[in-house]
């Protein structure tokens, strides 16, 4: 390699085109969009295909400041064009980011093609953010998540009318972090995915509507943190190394987690006749509950931090508040 020093003071030759592709990628990735990076194809032959093997693709469809909500169809076509032109065998980050208020059809089979692309090429992080707006005419609503063997993080923010189906076999071998938000799912499929198809999963965050079958059973030796907002239905959790759990909406719950350190219980009341915790240590670092779930204090003797959310009606007199305080003391 020619010493860099030999060139200094050399004046104005085309220094940028002499950089290796990996450095041009560093530069292109900092442009505002993949479109801007693709337009560098027009500079010269050296630049013709540089953008087509950038290690990351972040495709966003956002609303210009104060402008009208963008139209989905234009964006869908441009994503297809990018994926067709993309030439690298693997990429480390693939993100689809659509504006929350994006208008127009969003047929599930178009999104499925992008997930298929991720399944073949992605070794790293996947983020999908779809718009909130639901199009009544969208009848094609079932989306199948393909197996993503090399994905390490998956974040899917879908829309409530999309039914996310999970693959019957195959393993998400590298996955450590999974978030699924705002979709409809099948309880048994969710349980199967986490229990037998994600051997390294450490963090799981689900905020979904359950359909078809409502019971979710999770057995995982890798899970450390679990946020569950789904219902109605029964939740079973067998996780020897789980440290942190948040539960909302489960009508029944049976949680075996000997190493639990932090518990959040939201929304529906904790009722010991249908919600049970099996823990080894009766000590918690943090317990976060509201006044309908005071009985969740029972399985634990001590807690470092108690976050208690109280809603006190305006008509409550000070005396009543004091007596509530006494009851809590006891």
């Amino acid at each position: 390699m020619e010493p860099l020093a030999a060139r200094s003071g050399g004046g104005s030759e085309n220094l940028i085109s002499a950089l290796p592709d990996e450095l041009l990628h560093c530069i292109l990735l900092r442009l505002p969009s993949v479109a801007a990076a693709a337009r560098t194809s027009l500079l010269s032959r050296r630049w013709r295909h540089v953008w087509t093997h950038m290690p990351e693709l972040i495709l966003s469809c956002s609303r210009p400041d104060g402008g009208p909500a963008p139209v989905a169809s234009v964006f869908l076509d441009s994503v297809d064009a990018v994926l067709n032109a993309y030439s690298a065998p693997t990429l480390r980050h693939f993100e689809i980011h659509m504006d929350l208020f994006c208008r127009g059809h969003l047929p599930a089979h178009r999104i499925a093609r992008w997930l298929q692309f991720a399944s073949r090429r992605l070794a790293g992080r996947l983020d999908f953010y779809l718009p909130m707006h639901e199009d009544e005419e969208d009848t094609d609503r079932e989306l199948i998540l393909p197996v993503l063997e090399r994905a390490t993080e998956i974040k899917l923010l879908l829309r409530p009318n999309i039914v996310l189906r999970l693959p019957p076999g195959g393993s998400f071998t590298a996955l450590t972090d999974l978030r699924i938000m705002l979709s409809t799912m099948n309880g048994s499929e969710l349980g199967r995915l986490v229990s037998s198809q994600c051997p390294r999963l450490r963090k799981l965050h689900v905020l979904v509507k359950l359909a078809v079958d409502f019971d979710v059973s999770i057995r995982s030796k890798s899970l450390v943190s679990f946020f569950y907002y789904a219902g109605p239905g029964k939740l079973e959790v067998f996780t020897p190394f789980l440290e942190k759990i948040s539960v909302c909406q489960a009508t029944e719950a049976y949680i075996v987690a000997p190493n639990l350190k932090k518990v959040n219980w939201h929304d529906n009341a904790y009722d010991p006749s249908c919600h049970r915790f099996a823990v080894l240590s009766r000590h918690l670092q943090r317990l976060w509950i509201n006044e309908t779930s005071l009985r969740l204090m029972k399985p634990f003797d001590t807690v470092n931090e108690l976050w208690l959310v109280l809603s006190i009606p305006e008509c409550f007199s000070n005396r009543k508040i004091e007596s509530l305080g006494h009851r809590l003391d006891n």
Binding site: S12, E13, N14, L15, I16, S17, V34, A35, A36, A38, R39, S41, L42, L43, S44, R45, R46, W47, R48, D77, S78, A81, V82, A85
Partner: peptide, 21 residues
């Protein structure tokens, strides 16, 4: 200081390919 070494036709072709961009 990048020299454009495309022909006019080539540029037009790329421009069409990249219409989405």
């Amino acid at each position: 200081n990048i020299k454009n070494d495309y022909t006019k036709e080539e540029l037009e072709e790329i421009r069409q390919e990249l219409a989405w961009a």
